Amino acid sequence: MRRAGVCLLLLALGSPAVADVVFRVPEVLVRPISDSKPVGISATASLHRPNTSEKGGDVEVQYEEYFVEHDVSTAEARKAAALLNLDDIPATRVGCGTCTRREMEYCETRVLMDHCCCERHFLPEPFPWLPHTCYVGPHRCHPLAHDCVKYTRLRDCCCYKHLAQQWKGIMSKSTSMISGGMIVLPLLFVPVLFFVAYL
């Protein structure tokens, strides 16, 4: 009986590691017959050891595995948005200055990518009201804002209030659509995908 309990515990501890692999990205390498140096679509593929590979003639397929680092589900985001008080969020912070149009475009299109690169699950989630999924892979990520310090400044000075207003509205509408018996737009259920790597 005791032995069976230990086996069940080992299975429970071992299974998430296998289930956590979300997807594998292939890199195809073509090896010329006269030369052993790989050439192909990935310039750095020969520098990294692949997790797995399949060989067939002069073509080799290598895979990189990506895992969920952390995520905020639509249900969790909806709860957080309901508790969000926009009056408690300052429009900007001391020393921030005015945000440019380019910085506001960064908030709309790239801030979540840098969030996934710079902030891991052990840090407080800055966007609990925004559904997203952050993935982690085998290579180091590079923030689109050039570094995590600049990302943090843009997040706090330009993005936070803007995105909080936007997503509180989106989550409120999705809640009313559900309570009214309508189907929520599929876009709200599709998590934001980001490819990042271990720091």
Rank of each mutant, 00 (worst) to 15 (best):
S172N: 06
P128F: 06
D35V: 15
T52H: 06
G181H: 07
C118S: 11
I183Y: 04
D58C: 11
P32C: 06
L112C: 03
S174N: 11
A197I: 15
I170P: 01
L29K: 01
W129M: 13
K79P: 03
D20Y: 00
E108M: 11
V39G: 01
G97P: 03
S15R: 12
L8Q: 09
P191E: 05
L185A: 14
L199P: 12
R120A: 07
W167A: 02
P32D: 00
K150V: 03
D35A: 12
P90H: 00
A91Q: 08
L199K: 14
V68C: 10
R155P: 10
A80S: 05
P38K: 06
M113F: 12
G40A: 08
L10F: 03
Y160M: 14
M171D: 01
T133S: 08
C99L: 00
A145Y: 01
I41S: 08
D20K: 14
R3C: 09
P138Q: 01
R31A: 04
V6T: 10
I178H: 14
P124V: 09
P191H: 04
A91P: 05
R110M: 12
C7N: 05
V28N: 02
R93F: 10
W129P: 09
T92V: 10
I178N: 12
R102K: 05
M113Y: 13
R140P: 00
S176M: 14
T52F: 04
G40F: 09
I170Q: 00
S15L: 15
A145Q: 02
D35C: 04
V39T: 06
P16R: 04
A12L: 13
A91R: 13
G56M: 14
P16A: 09
A17W: 06
H115M: 04
P143N: 00
M177N: 04
K161G: 06
C107H: 07
D88F: 08
S34T: 15
G95M: 05
A17R: 15
N85L: 04
C134Q: 13
V196H: 03
L130T: 07
L185H: 15
P32L: 03
N85I: 10
V18W: 10
C107Q: 02
P38W: 08
V22K: 13
V196S: 11
A4E: 13
S34G: 13
F127L: 12
R49V: 14
R24I: 06
P38M: 01
V39C: 04
R102F: 06
T44N: 13
T74N: 13
N85K: 07
L163I: 07
E54K: 15
L47Y: 06
V21S: 01
A43F: 13
V136A: 02
R153G: 01
V184D: 07
L112I: 12
P50F: 06
T44R: 15
Y151P: 03
Y160K: 14
H162Y: 02
S73T: 13
Q165R: 13
R49Q: 10
T98E: 03
L11F: 02
V94P: 12
L84D: 09
I33F: 10
A45P: 07
P90W: 08
D88L: 10
R101M: 11
V192D: 09
L83C: 05
P128Y: 00
W167Q: 07
H139I: 14
V28M: 08
T109H: 04
G40R: 08
R3N: 01
V21N: 01
P126N: 02
